[in-house]
């Protein structure tokens, strides 16, 4: 299959690599139909993340069709359309049972590296360095999904890839920002930065009942996107400001 491989700072190459196979009983193999580039892929691209190795396959925002399942995956079937969260979670450790999936104890085979660097390891991640598990990512034709009975969401036929792909990482990121702000119906909310995460934070603020959202950015194109997003919402408006301080 073809995959995007990291080879060093600002050196990514599309390479021909072997297809992934089932390794553990709770694995699935997904044929990727859509994948995205995350802002945090730039940190890998620019060489800021340690424990990368030449040949590592990138990509942690992806979705596709299940083409193979391990013997212990009972809730998915071949042919299912799924969107896959970028954090890998076993679903059974104490963290997972408390809904803290990104702190899973059992998904990072290199947890000791993260423990040495940070004192504690979080869950394994797709395509994001060996200290987060060294999992091959989804910027590829196929990807192996560990603990596939926990992470993937089945996607109904009437939704397009573009409508659900961002559930893999960036939409929850913006949503969590809004959730942390404890927005209540009628609130006026300011969102600094109207990049993709900011746009999702604006959208999430409206979902939570904000009366008005003020988007702040210095890039006119981004402000225009924020305005367009607000216009699609009939009852409220986004007031977009430009900020020279950035």
């Amino acid at each position: 299959m073809k995959a995007i491989c990291w080879h060093g700072t600002r050196d990514l190459r599309v390479e021909q690599v072997p297809d992934p196979a089932i390794i553990n009983p709770r694995d699935a193999i997904v044929r990727v139909t859509s994948t995205a580039i995350c802002g945090s892929d730039l940190h890998l691209y620019d060489g800021f993340i340690p424990t990368m190795a030449a040949g590592d396959i990138l990509g942690h925002e992806f979705m596709g069709e299940v083409v193979e399942i391990g013997k212990d995956v009972r809730n998915l079937a071949i042919g299912d359309r799924v969107v896959v969260p970028f954090t890998i979670a076993c679903g059974r450790c104490e963290s997972c049972q408390n809904g803290q999936w990104s702190l899973c104890d059992n998904s990072n085979p290199n947890a000791w590296i993260a423990e040495k660097m940070y004192g504690y390891s979080a869950s394994g991640l797709f395509g994001y360095s060996h200290m987060y598990g060294g999992y091959a990512g989804g910027q590829a034709e196929y990807v192996r999904v560990p603990y596939a009975d926990v992470g993937p969401f089945k996607v109904p036929e009437h939704l397009t890839d573009e409508q659900v792909l961002f559930l893999s990482d960036i939409f929850p990121t913006g949503y969590m920002a809004a959730e942390n702000a404890e927005i209540e119906p009628g609130d006026v909310v300011a969102v600094w930065g109207c990049g993709p995460v900011g746009l999702f934070a604006i959208k999430s603020a409206f979902i939570m009942g904000a009366e008005r959202v003020i988007g702040i950015d210095r890039v006119p194109h981004r402000l225009e996107m924020a305005r367009a997003l607000a216009r699609r919402r009939s009852t409220s408006t986004t007031k977009a400001c430009s900020s020279s301080s950035g």
């Binding site: 299959m1 491989c5 190459r13 390794i23 190795a53 040949g55 590592d56 396959i57 085979p109």
Partner: peptide, 8 residues
């Protein structure tokens, strides 16, 4: 992750 694909 032993046995998964990677590039050169």
């Amino acid at each position: 992750v032993t046995g998964q694909p990677h590039g050169k």
